[in-house]
Design a protein around this nucleic acid. Sequence first.
DNA 1: GCTTATATTGACACCGGTTACCAAACAGTG
DNA 2: CACTGTTTGGTAACCGGTGTCAATATAAGC
Lengths: 342, 342
Amino acid sequence: MGAITAREAKPTINDVAREAGVSKKTVSRVINRSPLLNDATREKVEKVIAALGYVPNPQARALALRRNFLIGLIHDNPNAQTVLNVQEGILSAIRDTEFALVVRPVNRRSPRMLDDVRAFLEQQRLFGVLLMPPISENDELARVCEELGVGYVRMGSAQLDSGEHLVESNDREAVRKAMEYLVALGHRRIAFVAGPEGFRSARERELGYRDAVKAAGLPQGPELEAAGNYTFETGKLAGDKLLDATERPTAIYSCNDEMAAGVLHAARERGLSVPDDLSIVGFDDSPIAAHIWPPLTTVRWPVAAMARTAALKLIDPGHASGQPALFPSIFIERGSAAPPRR
Amino acid sequence: MGAITAREAKPTINDVAREAGVSKKTVSRVINRSPLLNDATREKVEKVIAALGYVPNPQARALALRRNFLIGLIHDNPNAQTVLNVQEGILSAIRDTEFALVVRPVNRRSPRMLDDVRAFLEQQRLFGVLLMPPISENDELARVCEELGVGYVRMGSAQLDSGEHLVESNDREAVRKAMEYLVALGHRRIAFVAGPEGFRSARERELGYRDAVKAAGLPQGPELEAAGNYTFETGKLAGDKLLDATERPTAIYSCNDEMAAGVLHAARERGLSVPDDLSIVGFDDSPIAAHIWPPLTTVRWPVAAMARTAALKLIDPGHASGQPALFPSIFIERGSAAPPRR
DNA sequence: GCTTATATTGACACCGGTTACCAAACAGTG
DNA sequence: CACTGTTTGGTAACCGGTGTCAATATAAGC
C-alpha cells in the first residue's frame, strides 16, 4: 500500500496525480467537476483523493482563478441579534460550498469609514460583500464596491439599487398593518416613536405610520410624535415626552423594539399598566421583545432569510437574477397591546 | 507622467519594480520590511508604491509564504451580544494588520460538529482560530486544531489549557463576591439557578455560589437549587420551581442574565415585587440586563478585552507568551437587589 | 480503409508573490 | 594592489493550482 511519503505534509495535486497515474490537469478537472472527463478516470482520481485526504489549497486556487472565495459582511448595526441572524443567514447559504464569511464592522460616524472599507476591499480582494442596514443605505459605499470591481448586494427596506444588487423588506406596509391592528382594537390616539434621521428603514416605518393615520383619519400632531435613535435610552426619553402630554395617547407605536422597551420602562415609572392603560407595539422582534413583561407585540423582519438570499445572489447571480427579492414581515401578536380602557 | 499602462488592472509587484527601476526582489524586501536595505532605495520604492496604489495580492503571498492571514472565530454561544463583543475585540486587535476575521458558528449538539470544524480548517487553512465559550471547553476540538497544525487560543472561565493557548476569566470568584453582596444586604435564604451540565462556566459559577454558601453558613438544599440551560425560558421554569417552594427564598442568584430575566418573569406572574419581595442577581451584563425592569444587578464579563488579548496571542505568540491572561469581572450594581423585606 | 468529428488527456506557461543562490559593488585589510 | 568581508540586486525555481491548446484515442461518415 502506497509509497513512502511524508506523513505531515498535506498532499498536493501533484501527489494525487502521481498516485493516480494522471496529469495534474486531470485532477484539476475532477476537482472542478469538468464535464468533459471520462467517468472511469474520475472515479479513479476520486478514490485517490479520498485515500490521501487531499483538499485543494484555496490560496493557490484563488491565485490562479484571480478570485477568492471570501465574502464579506460590512455592517454597523447596533442590534447584535440582528447582526448574528444575518451571519446565520449567510452561513446557511454558503454551507457546503468553499466560501467563507469575513466580517467587518464599521463605524458609520467615522470620517475615515469609506477609506477604511476601501482599504479592506483592496487588501483582501474579496469575492463580494453584503451590506446590511443601515450602512447599506450609503450610496457612496456601493459606488466604491462598483469601482473596485467587488460584487455587492445591499439589504434594505426600500428600493435602494437595481435588482441584482438588492434584497428588500417592506417595512412600510408592515407598519401600516400593525397600525391597522391597533385601530381594530379601538385605538384612535396612537403616538409614534420615530427612528434616527437618515435611516431609510426609519423613514419607511414612519411612512407606514402616516399611511395608517391618514387612512383611518386618526388624530395627529407634534404631541403624538417623538424621535429616538433606535436605543433603549432614547426610547425611554421618547416615552417620557409622549406620556407627559396633556392628552395621553392610548397606544404608542415604536419603530423598533429596543425603543419600545424604553417606552415600556417610561410607562412603568408612571405607574401605568401595559397593556391596560397603554398599548405598545414595536418592530424587529428582537430577543428583548419576548423577554420583557408583558411580552411585546411586534413585527418580525425576516432578516436571516434576506441575508441568505443576498448571499445566494452574490455567489450565484444567474440563479436569482433580475427583480429584487422582496421579503414580507410577519406580525407577531403578544401581550403588550389590548383594547383601550373604558 | 508614467508609461502607458492598463488603467483597470491592479498593479503588480512587477509594475512597481519596473517603475522604480529595481528588481521585484527589492520591492518584496520593502514590503516585508527587510532590514538589509538601503534607505534611499526603500524610499524610492515606497514612493512608487504609493503613486501606483499598489497593494500586494494576499492570495499570492499566502501561497508563497505557506500561511494565510485569516483568523477564524469558532463559536456556538447563544448570546448574540457576547458574540458580537468578541468579534469587536478581535477586530480591534487585527485592525491595521493584514489579518481578517472569518466567522464560523457551529452547532454543539450536532454529531458532525467535529467533522464540520475539521473540514472547515482543512479547507480554509486558516492562520489560527479563536475558540469562545462554551465550545472552547471542548478538548477534542483543541486536539483537532493541534493535529491540523492550526494555531488556537481558547477563551474560558477556568484553566483549560496551557498558557499559550488560553485566555481566562475568573467567574468563580466573581460569583462569590456577588453572593457576598447579597449576604451583606441581609439575605440568608439565597437560591441558585445553575447553568447547563457540561459547561465549564456554569460549573465555575456554581462553585462560586457554594464557596459563598459555605463561608457564610447559609441554608442550602434541593429546594434552593434549580438548573437551566442559559435561556430565558429555562430561567422562567427555574423561577417557577424556586418560588413555589414551601419556604420561599428572599434572593435568587442566576448564573446568567437571560435566566435571571426568566426568574423575574416568574416572580412577576406571582405578583412579587422585585427587589422588595425578591432580589435577583445575574451574570454577564447582557444588554437585556439594563433593559428589563428593574434593571438587573449583575456581573460584567470583560469579553471584548479577552477576545482582543486572545487574538493578539494568536497572531503574535511571542508578545504575550507564557502565563494565561486572567481577566477580572466587574460587579454591576443596579436595581434588582435590595435588603429583604421585614 | 481512409478522412473527419468528437471525446479525453497532457504539456506548458502563468497567476503574483517568495526564497535560495549567486554576482556585482563597495569597503576595509595586510 | 591583491584579498576578504559586507551590502545590495538579479536570476531562477517554486508555492499549488488553472487556462490554452495540441496530441491522442475513439467513433462516425463515406
